[in-house]
Amino acid sequence: MNLGAIARHRLFWPLVALVLLLVASALKSPAFLEVTVRDGHLFGGPVDILRRSSVLLLVALGMTLVIATRGIDLSVGAVMAIAGAVALSQIAASPDPGALSTVLLAMATALAVALAVGVFNGFLVAVVGIQPIVATLIFMTAGRGIAMLITGGQITTVTSAPYKTIASGYWLGLPVAALIAAFVFGVTALLTRRTALGVLIESVGINPSASRLAGVRARTIIWTVYVICAAFACIAGFIKSSDIMAADSNNAGLFIELDAILAVVIGGTSLAGGKFSLTGTLVGSLVITTLTLSITILGIPVNAVSLFKALVVIAVCLLQSPVVQHRMRSRRRRVAPVPVEVPA
């Protein structure tokens, strides 16, 4: 493969952005890329990025599948808030918050609630036929209210060693949160590429009526992806609430749906549905997380943060767009001698 072909790959520019952000951070703060062993686990900028991107990656993975079916799920942030609220209020209310059984039970309850939200979303989209953006808007707005009611409008704080492990723990020297995300990524990849689920999702996303006539259970598949999306958002909610050991219903996962959609798009999955790329979503999540972290490292002035973020995202999206790529290629080609039209 020549250089041109590499540059045309849809993940080329996102990866360039990722490298540039890392290099810039490392230039500003040379210690940034150093990975050291501290208290028996790895510590350093790259480890931080992995751990931090786990939340976004989880949400974006579910979002990828939903978007592949021509859908969108705006309720993921609210589901995160609900997951944290249910789990932590149950742990806080239990007599033994530090017990592993308490934590597992609380997480199971939260997962059940999140799955119910996913089933509800999927029902509205696949069965009732409401447009996904409208259907999921219901829980996007109402979900936080539910989480607030569960926590009684307070930030529920708990002390529970097993729960804290989710976000702050390490296993084999690696952050547990990153391992969870990696595991879910692996399972999703297996589920979609080792079974026929992936190609059926794509088929439904590209042409729903043709897929139905081909015998594909389009309805079931669409329903399933919303449930999967909610489940992944729930796990993300665990990590987020474990991170601060508090259920902050107002802020947990606030606006993460936008970041997730962005990660999916940067990863090369079209919002029009169809072909999706999990690897692309992984890269997209890393880019966005690194971007957020590098803002602190680079010391971007507070007032310029939004602008800086927007500029990086716009640059990546523009460079990726087929139109711009085409223009850049034809400009290069124009230099080469081409047969010119002969006047008649």
């Binding site: 079974t195 026929a196 059926l200």
Partner: peptide, 14 residues
Amino acid sequence: VLGLQAERGWLRRI
């Protein structure tokens, strides 16, 4: 293979 696959269900990939 889409028709064949649809008939087998998503779990049993051809």
